[in-house]
């Protein structure tokens, strides 16, 4: 029995096959790649991108884009670290409000949600293209981060907080558990809820979705809100891993997340794609990054290679759409 390259199973598993071939290729060239320490390290590293990318998947499924996730990550990470370390002081009331790890995380996720909702509000209320609206938020959030941190890292956040990014639970790194949890939530949203079906419907044909009675603005608002929240979760992971919030944290993370979404098979024109595909896309990016480092490729060439991989993924996506 022979299976052609156009077989639906092959087409459906394109990203997985690409990941397998990539792993095979790198393991042939580097004996360090297939060690458990390295593989856990790769998973720990990609957990941030996974969190951001699953949020981005919902946005792209709706034929949108969110360029602000990296900056939102940076800002929420800084706020989380700032609250944890300095709390809030109200001189006039002689009051100090301290934050526990849980409190700081909740506030930063809430801020991520608010910034995401703001993106959604601008996009729906003023009919501004998502590219422009989120580009503006990219600059706003980065500026806010610089103002909040004064360009100085906020460090020494305590061992309890550090555990989130560096700890292990049941033999698996904590960030991996968190990213799995986030993925499961978004998979549930997309597969098992009407909200998920509305996202696909809007991405497939916005006009038809509107005419069939879907409240498009409400769904868009929620999706951008979720993307902001996911970025904030990524921010918590980055900060806890370093035990420090860096003012430039998250710079260009939006590109890695868009790359993961596209490589994972989600169509930039919306309506087609899966969260699991995005996870595979994020793993491909992570493995590629790790492999290029292990193979001692210059960081500049790494960027070139990554760019070509994204380009290849988009071309394959276009060709698939044409064939349909």
């Amino acid at each position: 029995m022979t299976i052609s390259l156009n077989h639906p199973l092959i087409k459906k598993s394109q990203s997985l096959i690409a990941l397998f071939l990539l792993c095979l290729f790198i393991s042939l060239l580097s004996d360090k790649f297939m060690t458990s320490a390295n593989l856990w390290n790769v998973l720990r590293q990609i957990s941030v991108n996974v969190c951001i990318s699953v949020g981005m998947t919902l946005v792209v499924l709706m034929a949108g884009i969110d360029l602000s996730v990296g900056s939102v990550l940076g800002f929420t990470a800084a706020v989380c670290a700032g609250l944890l370390k300095n709390g809030l002081a109200f001189e006039s009331m002689d009051l100090f409000v301290g934050f526990t790890v849980l409190g700081a995380i909740l506030v930063s996720v809430l801020i991520g949600l608010v910034l995401g909702l703001f993106n959604g509000w601008v996009i729906t209320k003023f009919s501004i293209p998502p590219f422009v609206a989120t580009l503006a938020m990219l600059t706003i959030a980065r500026g806010l981060t610089m103002l909040y941190t004064e360009g100085i890292p906020i460090s020494n956040l305590g061992t309890a907080f550090e555990f989130i990014g560096s700890g292990w639970m049941l033999g698996i790194p904590v960030p991996v558990w968190i990213s799995i949890f986030m993925v499961l939530i978004v998979v549930f949203l997309t597969k098992k809820t009407t909200f998920g079906r509305y996202i696909y419907a809007i991405g497939g044909n916005e006009k038809a979705a509107f005419l069939s009675g879907i409240n498009i603005n409400k769904i868009k608002l929620a999706v951008y809100g979720i993307a902001g929240m996911m970025a904030a979760v990524g921010g918590v992971l980055v900060t806890s891993r370093l035990n420090s919030a860096q003012p430039n944290a998250g710079t260009s993370y939006e590109l890695d997340s868009i790359a993961a979404v596209v490589i994972g098979g989600t169509s930039l024109s919306g309506g087609i794609g899966t969260v699991t595909g995005t996870v595979i896309g994020a793993v491909i990016i992570g493995v590629l990054n790790n492999g290029l480092v292990l193979l001692d490729v210059s960081p500049f060439w790494q960027q070139v290679v990554k760019g070509f991989v994204i380009l290849l993924a988009v071309i394959i996506d276009k060709m698939n759409q044409k064939n349909k």
Binding site: A89, F90, E91, M93, D94, L95, F96, V97, G98, F99, T100, L102, G103, L106, V107
Partner: peptide
Amino acid sequence: ILGYNSVYFKKLSDI
């Protein structure tokens, strides 16, 4: 429950 476990209050002068 989340709120109770998230924040604590102290006198700023004591801090």
